[in-house]
Deep mutational scan, measured.
Amino acid sequence: MVQRGSKVRILRPESYWFQDVGTVASVDQSGIKYPVIVRFEKVNYSGINTNNFAEDELVEVEA
């Protein structure tokens, strides 16, 4: 279970941040499909630095 402030590695192959490390900004408990919002240092092609992920697409590298 990841929690706010954890450092996580992204396992979603189609993601711009695949294999990159980001910080968990928040975790939604309402039961949505992609409840974990992760914030990154670098921006993607659209200038965005956050994205939603499912918990099984993340691996915690640092608490």
Rank of each mutant, 00 (worst) to 15 (best):
M1N: 13
M1F: 11
M1G: 14
V2D: 05
V2C: 14
V2H: 07
V2L: 14
V2K: 04
V2Y: 14
V2W: 10
V2P: 10
Q3P: 05
Q3N: 08
Q3W: 00
Q3R: 14
Q3H: 11
Q3L: 07
R4I: 15
R4E: 13
R4Q: 13
R4T: 13
G5N: 05
G5R: 03
S6G: 05
S6W: 04
S6K: 08
S6Q: 10
S6C: 14
K7C: 12
K7D: 04
K7Y: 05
K7P: 03
K7G: 03
V8L: 00
V8S: 01
V8G: 02
R9S: 04
R9G: 05
R9I: 10
R9W: 00
R9K: 10
I10W: 01
I10M: 01
I10G: 02
I10S: 01
I10E: 02
I10L: 04
I10Q: 02
L11A: 04
L11T: 07
L11I: 09
L11K: 05
L11Q: 06
L11D: 04
R12A: 09
R12V: 09
R12H: 04
R12T: 07
P13Q: 12
P13F: 10
P13H: 07
P13L: 06
P13Y: 08
E14N: 12
S15W: 05
S15T: 03
S15G: 02
Y16R: 03
Y16W: 07
Y16E: 10
Y16L: 03
Y16G: 04
W17D: 03
W17P: 03
W17T: 00
W17H: 01
F18V: 03
F18I: 03
F18W: 07
F18E: 04
F18L: 01
F18R: 00
Q19H: 09
Q19Y: 08
D20Q: 13
V21H: 04
V21A: 02
V21R: 00
V21N: 02
G22I: 06
G22E: 02
G22M: 04
G22R: 01
G22N: 02
T23F: 09
T23N: 04
T23A: 03
T23M: 08
T23W: 09
T23V: 13
T23K: 03
T23G: 02
T23C: 12
V24P: 01
V24Y: 00
A25F: 09
A25I: 15
A25P: 00
S26F: 14
S26M: 12
S26W: 14
S26Y: 14
S26C: 15
V27P: 01
V27S: 04
V27F: 10
V27H: 05
V27D: 01
V27L: 07
D28I: 09
D28C: 12
D28P: 04
D28Y: 01
Q29D: 12
Q29G: 11
Q29M: 13
Q29L: 13
Q29E: 11
Q29A: 11
Q29R: 14
Q29W: 10
S30D: 05
S30H: 07
S30E: 05
S30T: 13
S30N: 08
S30R: 09
G31C: 14
G31N: 15
G31Q: 12
I32V: 14
I32C: 12
I32K: 09
I32E: 10
I32T: 13
K33L: 11
K33V: 08
K33T: 09
K33E: 11
K33C: 10
K33Q: 12
K33G: 08
Y34T: 05
Y34P: 03
P35I: 10
P35D: 06
P35E: 08
P35S: 09
P35G: 08
P35W: 10
V36K: 00
V36D: 01
V36P: 01
V36S: 00
I37R: 14
I37S: 13
I37W: 15
I37Q: 13
I37A: 12
I37C: 15
V38R: 00
V38C: 05
V38H: 00
V38T: 00
R39N: 10
R39A: 10
R39C: 14
R39Y: 12
R39D: 07
F40P: 01
F40L: 01
F40S: 01
F40D: 03
E41D: 13
E41A: 09
E41M: 05
E41T: 09
K42P: 01
K42E: 10
V43G: 10
V43P: 15
V43W: 09
V43L: 10
N44H: 12
N44C: 11
N44P: 06
N44A: 05
N44E: 07
N44G: 05
N44V: 05
N44T: 06
N44L: 05
Y45M: 15
Y45I: 13
Y45F: 13
Y45C: 15
S46E: 15
S46T: 09
S46P: 06
S46W: 14
S46N: 14
S46A: 15
G47Y: 05
G47V: 01
G47M: 00
G47I: 01
G47H: 03
I48S: 14
I48G: 09
I48W: 06
N49E: 05
N49A: 08
N49F: 08
N49M: 07
T50Y: 14
T50A: 08
T50M: 11
T50W: 15
T50P: 00
T50F: 14
N51G: 15
N51K: 05
N51M: 15
N51S: 15
N52K: 07
N52V: 06
N52P: 08
N52H: 10
N52G: 10
F53L: 01
F53W: 02
A54M: 10
A54V: 03
A54W: 05
E55V: 14
E55S: 09
E55D: 07
D56R: 07
D56H: 14
D56K: 06
D56I: 08
D56P: 04
D56T: 09
D56Q: 07
D56G: 07
E57A: 02
E57P: 04
E57T: 03
E57N: 02
E57W: 05
L58K: 00
L58I: 12
L58W: 02
L58Q: 00
L58P: 01
L58S: 01
L58G: 01
L58C: 07
L58Y: 04
L58N: 03
V59H: 07
V59P: 02
V59E: 15
V59G: 07
V59I: 13
V59Y: 08
V59R: 08
V59F: 10
E60H: 09
E60A: 12
E60I: 15
E60T: 13
E60W: 10
V61F: 06
V61R: 02
V61M: 07
V61D: 05
V61C: 08
V61Q: 04
E62H: 12
E62S: 12
E62M: 11
E62P: 11
E62N: 12
E62Q: 11
A63S: 12
A63K: 12
A63L: 11
A63E: 12
